[in-house]
Simulated scan of single mutants.
Amino acid sequence: MSGAERILEAPYGSPVYGAWRQEAAGDWQAYTHHAFVEQLGAGTLPREIFLHYLTQDYIFLFHFARAWALAVVKSETIAEARFAASIVDGLMNTEMSLHVDICGKAGISEAALLAAAEERENLAYTRFVLDAGMSGDFLDLVAALAPCVMGYGEIGARLAREGAADTPYRQWVDTYASDDYQGLCASVGELIETAVRGRLGDAPAALPRWASLSKRFRTATRLEIGFWEMGLRGPTVAPDLT
């Protein structure tokens, strides 16, 4: 079964992730079925809107990589540290390259991507994730990181199943529907299970700590919604060339 054909009844093999996702159900639906996503899948998303989103996402991924690097520092096992380090490598050397490639074909250079100013929604989201790691522990950071990784996996798989491969945004859809990315989501699911149960035991939802972790997950999900809204709105800030 390919990544795009997986049925996500038990999301990526992680009951903990599934519980967080269920507790944020309304926001999760708004995130993964946002108008930006639906227009992207249908191929009706204006090209300039998509390119603005990619420019901001390029900046986001840089800070996201910093957050995964912080996960190396916050890790308690070599396995956690190695996995987090591999995510940093994948973000910096693979996923960000997708943005450079697509934007380059549209005449937007990597230098222009680097010069782009961050929209306020981008600032809010990335700094929230980094603060989760700085002020909290490994679990706080993973809960804040999970919605982006897993949500994009679910979105990519669904759009591919629904035939979005025929849209102008096929390269984007194929990236997140691919077996490689779906495998990454499964690995993150395993990381979540191992990290949470290793620290909180076999009944983590029964502990007081659970509510704060679930809240971090839901807040990050809401910030993902804001990121799509930012994409649809279009740019509000000019590049900082000073």
Rank of each mutant, 00 (worst) to 15 (best):
Glu190Pro: 10
Glu119Gln: 15
Tyr125His: 13
Pro239Ile: 02
Ala81Asp: 05
Val196Ile: 13
Asp179Phe: 08
Ala112Pro: 04
Gly43Asp: 11
Val37Phe: 07
Tyr169Ala: 12
Gly104Phe: 11
Tyr181Val: 02
Gly151Met: 07
Asp180Leu: 10
Asp174Thr: 04
Leu141Ser: 03
Pro147Lys: 10
Leu70Gly: 07
Ser14Met: 13
Glu162Thr: 05
Ala186Phe: 04
Phe138Thr: 02
Ala144Arg: 03
Ala160Phe: 08
Ala24Asp: 13
Arg21Leu: 15
Ala25His: 12
Gly153Ser: 09
Glu119His: 13
Arg127Asn: 09
Lys74His: 03
Gly153Glu: 04
Leu184Pro: 00
Met1Phe: 12
Leu159Tyr: 07
Asp101Ile: 01
Asp179Cys: 12
Leu223Cys: 04
Thr236Leu: 13
Tyr58Ile: 06
Arg47Ser: 10
Ala157Thr: 03
Asn122Met: 13
Arg216Val: 01
Phe128Trp: 10
Asp89Gln: 12
Ser109Asn: 13
Met92Gln: 08
Trp20His: 12
Ile192Ser: 00
Gly3Leu: 06
Phe128Ala: 10
Ala206His: 14
Ala205Pro: 03
Glu224Pro: 02
Asp180Thr: 07
Arg199Leu: 06
Thr175Ala: 13
Lys74Asp: 00
Val149Leu: 15
Tyr53Asp: 06
Asp140Gln: 07
Cys185Asn: 11
Phe138Leu: 15
Pro235Lys: 00
Gly104Pro: 12
Glu154Ser: 05
Ala69Asp: 07
Gly234Arg: 00
Phe64Ala: 04
Phe227Ser: 01
Lys215Glu: 11
Gly104Met: 14
Glu121Ile: 00
Tyr125Leu: 15
Gly198Cys: 08
Arg47Gln: 15
Leu241Ala: 06
Ala238Asp: 11
Asp137Trp: 12
Val16Ala: 08
His63Asn: 14
Ala160Gly: 07
Ala203Pro: 02
Glu121Ala: 10
Thr194Lys: 15
Lys215Asn: 05
Asp202Glu: 15
Ala143Thr: 06
Thr94Asn: 14
Glu118Pro: 09
Pro147Ser: 10
Asp174Ser: 14
Leu141Met: 11
Ala10Cys: 11
Leu113Glu: 06
Arg158Leu: 12
Arg170Trp: 03
Gly18Trp: 03
Thr44Gly: 11
Gln22Ala: 15
Tyr125Glu: 04
Ala205Thr: 12
Asp131Val: 01
Gly133Gln: 08
Thr167Leu: 11
Gly43Cys: 11
Gly90Ser: 05
Lys105Asp: 15
Gly234Cys: 00
Trp228Lys: 02
Val129Phe: 06
Gly18Lys: 09
Leu200Val: 10
Ala203Gly: 07
Trp210Glu: 05
His63Lys: 15
Ala165Asn: 08
Ser214Cys: 10
Gly153Gln: 05
Arg158Pro: 13
Asp27Tyr: 09
Asp131Leu: 10
Glu162Asn: 14
Ala42Asn: 14
